[in-house]
Design a protein around this nucleic acid. Structure first.
Lengths: 186, 186
DNA sequence: ACCTGAACACCGTTCAAGT
DNA sequence: ACCTGAACACCGTTCAAGT
């Protein structure tokens, strides 16, 4: 007993799963390679057998977060909401995807789903919609987390109030819908 | 001659100005307190006399970047473009403002300018507009910089093409304009 | 195939002490 | 009022070597 090293071995998938769970616990700013390694009971250098760099690991996490977006079949508002909710499913998910997707031109899963919902020749509208969703979700998620930790230098009113209305308004306008379909139980 | 320390003293404004210039040179990821200190020919700890933390310094830089936005008097599209251009004026300006403004509820200078251009009771529209502008500008700026350094795993076509059209389309739609006023020399 | 151990060049921040 | 010097607890990454 009392082994001083761990015989458990990991593969790329296991590392990514642990990293994703840790992201949700500690947030993007505190998600270090050394922390991930510690959670896996492995030396930091071991991670570099599975990923070439931290950037590559983060890109994999962004892919896993956006993989939960339904491919097609829904209308624009529903598609937009499911993209937002996929980003909200993990702490700092929106910020991670935003910073990671910047280099992946229009080839994202999310943009494809939006183009499908918008119809043919909707490339620019789909891009604008995606930019709005990513900007809004990043700001909203940061505010929600700050508020739940009392870190806002608040002037009294809730900065989180009305966020869902702002989202629906933006999506409907860019999609060319006349008025937003009301949210459930608004 | 050959003095081994520098008799030059700095104030808060001078530190911020140097940091802003350095941001434009090296980008947000490489803007460390130690690098700023080195540029000022000062020890890193000296910076903490002027700012309580790196976060506070970054917030000051964000304020300086957005201070260049004209207060009012212009139409929505013009106002939106001048917000975008203020963010583009410094490397990673959009990303810095996005991450810094998350905690500053609706009280930003930019949002006030948009509300003024949109008219009375336009709070939600102004918020949606600001979210779009920040999301779009962050993505656009990162792509522009990646492209200029050949860092995109490119599939051939220019990821920067059409960005201005996407911007005008998004702004016009959210503002409730029927069709975007064409850009100069489009 | 997957990991250790050691090293390198960095971080942000604190604090007593100097001028 | 503004800075130094030293320290603390961290970073990402590389690389030879082990199993």
């Amino acid at each position: 007993m009392s082994p001083d090293h761990n015989p458990v071995r990991h593969d790329r998938d296991g590392v990514a799963r642990t990293a994703l769970a840790l992201l949700d616990e500690v947030g993007l700013a505190d998600l270090s390679m050394r922390r991930i390694a510690a959670r896996l009971e492995v030396q930091p250098s071991a991670l570099y057998w599975h990923f070439d760099s931290k950037q590559e690991l983060l890109a994999e996490l962004a892919d896993r977060i956006t993989a939960r977006i339904p491919a097609g079949g829904a209308d624009v508002l529903t598609t937009a909401r499911s993209i937002r909710d996929a980003l909200f499913a993990y702490r700092d998910g929106a910020e991670l995807v935003l910073s990671t997707y910047a280099l992946r031109l229009g080839s994202s899963h999310a943009q494809a789903a939006l183009e499908h919902a918008l119809g043919p020749d909707s490339g620019d509208r789909a891009a604008a919609l995606l930019h709005f969703i990513l900007g809004h979700s990043t700001l909203a998620q940061q505010r929600m987390h700050a508020e739940s930790h009392g870190a806002t230098a608040g002037d009294g009113d809730d900065p989180t109030a009305g966020l869902a209305e702002v989202f629906d308004l933006g999506v409907s306008a860019i999609a060319g819908l006349s008025a937003p379909r009301p949210r459930d139980r608004a």
